[in-house]
Design a protein around this nucleic acid. Structure first.
Lengths: 339, 339
DNA sequence: TTGTATGCGTTATCAA
DNA sequence: TTGATAACGCATACAA
């Protein structure tokens, strides 16, 4: 059994109150006593029991993390960011097995509430709306990170997909590309529509015409990227640039372009999305890509939840800027990482 | 403030002891009283405070998860497995920001000990030895999952890399391949050596000669896979099969083979390692691969930690079998998933 | 069948 | 300057 405060008290020949004061720098204690108690505590390896402290304070210095979808590669940077923000505050994170099932979710929430977490961060794989977390009659700070929710009073943090698409279009336009094709994911994804609209806005600003026939929606896969490029070429569409809805799609597209004898970036400049290092960097040539900066999103999520726990409520949806990461698929040497 | 047991007691017109008994099915209570108390508790949304319970029981029903390396794609299935094992036991998981720094790690351990976790699972990215977790004088069940430690008394769970290599060699040999090349990761990785030795053992069993010139070590990257194949072909090495140390390497190798006019699996059968769906399935042709079954490893880790918490100590290193996942890169239609 | 009292480990208040 | 004691919320042994 770990040493408790009474053990320290007995060993040091003082009362528990004195020990508490000595270790927490409270009250007025003779310096000698303080030092002595500390030495004894150190020697005994005393470590205050957080459970007792939390019970007393009514705060657990703990938050819960719930995911409404399987953990995936998006969760990792998000997680890292969240922990980075919480770590200095000495707040620990309870991880809940991701689930799509409302019943499981309810059980997770119940468990978190029973553990008296100070707040909850909800994460999702998609940026499409989900139902709000059901807290019953309990009231507790809840923040949705990389998740949108059907409730205007909710606090949501999302990457700025529109801005990301805009950034891609702007980059390509500035490099002198005129005909930008767009191969992307399923249209039912909010992110797909946002990125597309961002691209369109950037093109309009650059005075470039929008051509529906250059926009192709399909699955989030490499093979779709290949298939879409093949189709564009078969249809003899003319395009000198390609913005892809994901790095995986871009990877397939670049492979297909190369296999059809098109040079990247010579004939076609390509911008991907996600900046998934392992895909973007291994593509030939390495992909210029839009980075949704999920780690920063996680960090902001942690900081905002902290603020909410502190009493500041900040309802509404906030989007965080994406970054342009330049590699070699656009032929630009510039190293802008603009917002 | 959430309702507490006294609130329920007052509202139900009974004492706290009665409430406790009613809700926990203890003691002898008039059925009517029990029902009444339950109804009141339900109405008030009463939820016992785990902090108080844990303090009383001396157990927190909570474990800590520490990683000595950044979270990566390997942690995800591991995590899912761990949670799957712990979920039914209603045990929550504290996640600690992964770190390589012993000082940070010490702080994490201190935090977990202060929270009175019932046990700790340590994870690493590599299967190479790490220093044991420093618990000070505390004693607590610790399990190393996907991590090896320099301490024979420690409990370690690892994928059977040797078995995985053996499985790959056996599969290729059974398909009639005679000259198996091996493109793999850096030799300093224990996993690399194990997988290689497993391959060698399988080849010996099949009566196939081992040729050092067909074994190439390099970085864990696609481009290394391409480079290695290019080198083998340039040196005019003859091989009709290829076992790669990772799916990424295999992907690069397959791309290079195709680009050099070699058919897969026609001219060369290829087996990868990791069964990283997103890589293996998108390779042309889709990769047959060895799956280290990390989710199952995580599940076992959770179950064993549970056993250790229950009092059974089970020191030593245990390896869990890998599975062969057949796709199309070997031309085998058989669907063996042997151990 | 139900109520009361004690303890879990800590901090804070007040008395000494 | 230090010590005793009451919380925090719950379960449980024992008294009624």
């Amino acid at each position: 059994m770990p040493a408790k405060i009474v053990d320290v008290a007995r060993e040091a020949g003082v009362s528990v109150g004195t020990v508490s004061k000595a270790l927490n720098d409270r009250g007025q204690l003779k310096p000698h006593t303080r030092a002595h108690v500390r030495a004894v505590a150190e020697r005994l390896g005393f470590r205050p029991n957080d459970l007792a402290q939390s019970l007393l304070r009514g705060r657990s210095f703990t938050i819960g993390l719930i995911s409404s979808d399987r953990f995936g590669r998006f969760s990792i940077p998000l997680l890292e960011g969240i922990e980075e923000a919480l770590d200095p505050e000495r707040i620990a994170v309870f991880l809940c097995k991701p689930t799509d099932d409302p019943e499981h979710e309810r059980r997770h929430v119940a468990a978190l509430l029973a553990k008296r977490v100070d707040g909850i961060i909800v994460t999702a794989r998609r940026t499409d709306p989900r139902r709000p977390l059901d807290l019953g009659r309990e009231v507790l700070p809840v923040l949705y990170a990389y998740a949108r929710v059907e409730d205007d009073a909710a606090t949501c943090l999302l990457p700025d997909d529109f801005g990301g698409g805009h950034l891609a279009g702007q980059h390509l336009a500035r490099l002198g590309r005129r005909a930008i094709a767009h191969i992307t994911g399923p249209d039912r994804f909010d992110a797909v529509r946002q990125r597309r609209d961002g691209l369109r806005a950037a093109m309009r600003e650059a005075g470039l015409p929008w051509r529906e026939e250059l926009v192709l929606s399909g699955p989030w896969s490499e093979s779709w990227g290949r298939e879409a490029v093949t189709r564009l070429l078969a249809e003899r569409r003319r395009f000198d640039a390609l913005f892809c809805g994901s790095d995986q799609i871009a990877r397939g597209a670049v492979d297909a372009l190369r296999e059809h004898g098109k040079a990247v970036p010579g004939d076609v400049a390509v911008v991907g999305f996600d900046n998934w290092e392992i895909v973007a960097a291994e593509t030939r040539p390495p992909l210029t890509s839009i980075d949704p900066d999920l780690m920063e999103l996680g960090r902001q999520a942690g900081l905002r939840l902290l603020a909410m726990i502190g009493g500041e409520s900040q309802p509404g949806t906030t989007t965080l800027p994406c970054r342009l990461v330049v590699r070699q698929s656009c032929g630009a040497a510039e190293t802008r990482t603009a917002a």
